[in-house]
Amino acid sequence: MDLVLAVVVGLFIALGVYLLLSRALIRMLMGMLVLGNGVNLLIFTAGRLTREVAPIVPPGLEQAPGAIANPLPQALILTAIVIGFAMFSFLLVLAYRAYQTLDCDDTDEMRLAEPADAPNPPLSY
């Protein structure tokens, strides 16, 4: 089953990259979301998969009796999900503001910072 999940992770990453390479802002945002999910799954799978046994010690016991899922990647991913969401919201608003101000959503046309016809630096001291 690891193999299948690895392939699925690859698909997530591929789609995320593909969407990020688009010139349309909105597709780039979607790409961020997909890529984030792909990376979370990547960490999760790399920590090995265990079916259904959550890393929770039953009441009254000092340690879980059998094999449990690897808790470490889960802790890492949990925060990653929340941070990823917060950052995504920020990107969304940023993109929207840019869209409103510049009135375009094509990254090739959003050239306020690096204008295509920037003048040469002055040849003086």
Binding site: V9, G10, I13, A14, V17, Y18, T45
Partner: peptide
């Protein structure tokens, strides 16, 4: 498309090797 497939494939391969 090619770049995306290469990236995705590379991640899959590395992940399989890690596993």
């Amino acid at each position: 498309g090619l770049l995306a497939l290469v990236c995705g494939g590379a991640v899959s391969l590395v992940l399989i090797a890690v596993l």
